[in-house]
Design a protein around this nucleic acid. Structure first.
Lengths: 182, 182
DNA sequence: ATGTCCATGTAATCCGTTACATGATTAT
DNA sequence: ATAATCATGTAACGGATTACATGGACAT
């Protein structure tokens, strides 16, 4: 499990509330490890029990109070231990492939629509990545943390670019099949 | 949820036992939708309750009896309904990215080892795909089901090829970072 | 002797999703 | 007025993983 580690890794950058973490998972680290705010709050409870974070309520006026979580030395140690062990292969789960597997039992027009939607979604992701790259990762910051984030953005951009290409190739192929079937 | 549909899709090709399905998920459709035998047996129970499959025990001597599951017309209908609805984006979950996100708190040598392992794993997958392609998908079968499987193999090959490329690029970049840090 | 293949499943735990719940502030 | 943002969580359910369990056949 790496949700707890993903949270600890975020807290290494700076102390954050559950709400901050949820936004971070929505905007940056979540591009590579998705999690909802419910998961995050539950996991924060576990991390507190294990002593990997300590939590402090900060009074605010006009807004609900924030509970800010800080990583402890034990938490930092847990990150080190986790990071030295090889992870598992990402688990594959893509309905589109399953639909292609069943091409004979599927409505072709619907499948083409779904392909178009998917291509769009990947293009949206890609342009988000590119915007972030231009804004934050084209400068001269040389810290390791900055470099790591720059590298995953580059990986993400390559991944999405390649996906768009092969999804378009698949679209071309089923269009060809349809014409041959007439 | 598409595990139930992935199973129904397999049973569209031919009736199978839970064991056969588990092997199929280990070898072909499972490249694109992973599932363990425990999940499959549980799901078969649900599918039987819903009337989407009917199950028949076949006596064998010397081996445990097989329970062979056949898709029903209601099951085929369920596949059609599912296939006409757009699926959701595949959920992203890759520990390697998380480790890069935390590049400053991670042991570099371990990370390089993990990268090497991952590159190996993707190369193994890729050569599996290529072997299957040569053996079964280089001929002249023109049926839709065959074409669908040929297309997902092509997509899988492109996906794995691109992954290997960007993982190697990432390896190159962290090696460069290390040298700059000396 | 040891291990792998065939073939079925149960039990416990953990992870992920959906829905529910509250309530003030600020922007349109 | 209406909606979005800030900020926290609980509850219920369903999916995924890991471990446990059985037992004969056959190969090394």
């Amino acid at each position: 499990m790496a949700l707890s580690e993903a949270i600890l890794v975020c807290l290494t950058d700076r102390p954050m509330s559950g709400y901050d973490l949820a936004k971070t998972f929505d905007a940056s680290i979540g591009f590579f490890w998705r999690a909802s705010h419910q998961q995050i709050y539950r996991e924060l409870g576990k991390l507190r029990e294990k002593g990997f974070v300590k939590s402090q309520e900060i009074a605010q006026s006009g807004k609900p109070n924030r509970i800010v979580h800080t990583i402890t030395p034990a938490g930092a140690e847990a990150v080190k231990v986790w990071s030295s062990k090889p992870g598992r292969m990402p688990s594959v789960k893509d309905e589109l492939f399953v639909k292609f597997y069943a091409l004979g039992s599927v409505d072709m027009d619907a499948l083409k629509d779904h392909l178009t939607i998917r291509i769009d979604q990947h293009q949206t992701k890609l342009s988000k990545y590119r915007k972030i790259q231009d804004r934050y990762y084209s400068g001269e910051d040389q810290s390791l943390n900055h470099a790591g984030k720059r590298i995953i953005l580059e990986m993400g951009i390559k991944e999405e670019t390649s996906r768009i290409e092969w999804l378009q190739a698949a679209m071309f192929e089923i269009t060809k099949l349809e014409q041959a079937g007439n």
